[in-house]
Write a protein that binds this DNA or RNA. Structure first.
Length: 221
DNA sequence: ACCCAGGTGTTTC
DNA sequence: GAAACACATGGG
């Protein structure tokens, strides 16, 4: 079988069902980074409220977030949950980025593994947030994003992701990147489609009767 | 009144 | 190292 055939079939089935997803849902690279932090373990609808709160408080800018009093940040992003944690971490991330680079694109320039490590060293940026920022806020980092939906998918749908040992995130990410050419648009779209699938069908109460993957999906886990 | 959501960091066996 | 826990709001 051709390398990546199973994942390309997955992509085709999802794309046929849902079409292009236009991700990331944000206007600017900066907003993508902000949203990536705010959406951690949080429904996107709540992140939208938080982004709107930042905009309403005139804080949706590097300078605004870097210099705002924490209490103001907390109040603005409250709907996104974990608001005390996220306010501190978001401010720390923005200060780190714009303290060492003149803009986000400059901060994200360089070899993908090195920039990824740089992001991971920041408090509040773990593997998924780092990969989301790399993939969607920059244009030169075809790195695959693994989220809870992706992990759930590989547990139900027959994909030969290597078993342990090692970190589950890295194993899944490594599998996708080994099977697929490093294509920015493909990675962006496939991740977005997996989220669309998960948000529609793979929550606590699966709707497997209309799931585009019902043929071949284990329906368990 | 539950359960869950596009995780991360810390603490504990 | 895996596993358990804290972090918190809003919608089903």
């Amino acid at each position: 079988m051709l390398a990546g055939a199973k994942l390309l079939e997955l992509y085709n089935r999802l794309y046929s069902a849902y079409g292009p997803q236009h991700w990331w849902p944000a206007e600017t690279a900066f907003e993508i980074m902000v949203g990536a932090v705010l959406t951690q373990n949080t429904a996107w609808s709540n992140v939208e409220k938080a982004i709107a709160g930042l905009r309403a408080a005139d804080l949706l800018s590097p300078h605004g977030i870097a210099t705002a009093p924490l209490t103001s940040l907390e109040g603005a992003i409250r709907p996104s949950g974990y608001y005390r944690q996220k306010a501190r971490r978001l401010q720390g991330v923005v200060r780190a980025v714009y303290g060492s680079a003149s803009d986000l694109q400059e901060y994200l320039a360089g070899p993908t593994p090195e920039v990824r490590e740089k992001l991971l060293s920041l408090r509040g940026i773990g593997p998924e947030t780092a990969d989301s920022i790399l993939l969607y806020a920059a244009s030169a980092h075809p790195t695959f994003v693994v989220d809870a939906y992706t992990q759930r998918l590989v547990a139900r749908y027959p994909l030969p992701v290597p078993q342990g040992p090692g970190d589950a995130y890295d194993r899944t990410k490594g599998y996708f990147e080994a099977q697929l050419e490093p294509d920015l648009e493909l990675y962006r779209e496939l991740h977005a489609l997996i989220v669309r699938l998960g948000a529609t069908h793979c929550r606590a109460r699966p709707l497997c009767g209309t799931c585009p993957l019902r043929r071949g999906c284990a329906q368990k886990v």
